[in-house]
Design a protein around this nucleic acid. Structure first.
Lengths: 244, 244
DNA sequence: ATGCGACTTTGCAGAAACGCAAACAGAACA
DNA sequence: TGTTCTGTTTGCGTTTCTGCAAAGTCGCAT
């Protein structure tokens, strides 16, 4: 079992410092945190396993402590769309907060992950007992609504090249790690994944990335993307003139 | 001043029956409704005027009592995208509920409208005093998040013809009126509007509609669309075989 | 070391949709 | 009753992007 010796992340004994810094629990004092933790259950998910599935009964909600999670929705005819990536500290599976009985999407561990998990019925209790928790959750939902609206607008008004550039910049911003080569997107990411984020095909993504690599904007690799010139990519993503 | 003699919609004296049946106020008793109404201000908006503007200070939230409202977002370079249409009984401008200080989009009266309006700071008071109000609001937000996700998926996976068909079916479902010719979309709707809902151009929409008219699926008119064969359109929107 | 499976690249043909431009139609207004 | 303005149609050339096919590459397991 790997991921066991992951530095400070020992969930064998739930300590309030695990969650004390996280946005959803901001404004809760030590006693509150302990209460919350008492009903929490730690959870390890291996890479490429599903944390919950679209249309499955929404039995629990989660906080991601470590790792990366991909939120995917599938169409009836089997196509997939990646709605967002979740990074440590974020809530996921909060169907309850929205009055839903089933999960609207599937969540998949992109790497080995550590989460905390609560029974869904506790959500309303937490929200009632700790107003700050409810408030920040709803802010999160509001932020996700904003994100989705932004994505709709992007897909409606921008063409593929810029959409892909934007997607990479967002990922780099969210999960980028500075290296000597540039900003590396810090989890395995295939061309297919990028295609599913931007509503295009892996072919087009591949062509774009090779073109960009020739222009020195990115450097690739199998399941791996590194932005060698983030600013150049930004110029391309915003109104910059196309290729000259 | 038109719209004045609009049947039962007399807002000169605010009566609790104005809002008693509406989803956001479900579960409030007569006294609660009166309390809510005491701080409400009725508002008439003429056709084509803005109820609130994108990035403007979120001073108020609203309930639409009569009319139709278009929610629009503009990009930096002036392109517009129609995010949704609001029908009577729905809340709008609930930026406060999401912890936002400014409106994320512009709302425009598509026809002459009647609304109720409350100062934004009252939102949290209402939510605290009338839990049902808060809960249903959040369900609304959740539903809108779902809608947006669905739209992202649609734009990512379906091509223009189907997107337009879906958009028309949604509008017909939301605001359709049965006539002898079929289901008429009950407010002025230009080709350009349809284009802005679906992320395409008015040219393409026009071409599609004429093609459909020839196949007997819709019948057009200036600022007006009528679905003469909703089921045929549905078949086209879902996986049905393209033109034979 | 070798073979398998996955991810990736690349070429080419063709479809989908755009962009421009011009003509057209209908409503509103004077 | 004309005139203007806004919305609509339509043709044509062009770009963008897809879809398919085939080959290449890399990591991993045996």
């Amino acid at each position: 079992m790997r991921g066991q010796a992951k530095g400070p992340l020992d969930v064998s004994r739930l300590d309030r410092t695990l969650i004390s810094g996280l946005p959803p629990f901001e404004g809760l004092d030590a006693a509150d945190l302990d209460t919350v933790l008492q009903s929490a259950r730690p959870l390890r998910m291996e890479k490429d396993t599903a944390i919950f599935e679209q249309d499955g009964e929404a039995h629990s909600f989660f906080v991601l402590l470590d790792g990366k999670v991909r939120v995917v929705k599938s169409t009836v005819d089997g196509q997939q769309v990646i709605l967002r990536y979740i990074v440590p500290g974020e809530l996921l599976g909060i169907a309850q907060a929205l009055g839903r009985a089933t999960y609207p999407a599937t969540a998949i561990a992109v790497v080995d992950c550590v989460l905390l998990c609560w029974p869904g019925r506790l959500w309303s209790q937490f929200a009632a007992a700790f107003p700050a928790f409810g408030t920040t959750t709803y802010k999160t939902v509001g932020a996700r609504l904003s994100d989705m609206q932004a994505q709709v607008i992007e897909m409606a008004t921008e063409q593929v090249e810029r959409r892909v550039a934007h997607a990479l910049l967002r990922l780099a911003h969210q999960s980028g790690r500075k290296t000597d080569k540039g900003v590396l997107i810090d989890f395995p990411l295939s061309r297919q994944d990028i295609a599913e984020m931007t509503g295009t095909t892996l072919h087009t993504v591949s062509r774009l990335l090779t073109a960009w690599e020739e222009r020195g904007l990115v450097s690739g690799g199998r399941m791996q993307v590194c932005l060698t010139d983030p600013h150049g990519l930004f110029v391309l993503a915003e109104g910059g003139p196309g290729r000259t």
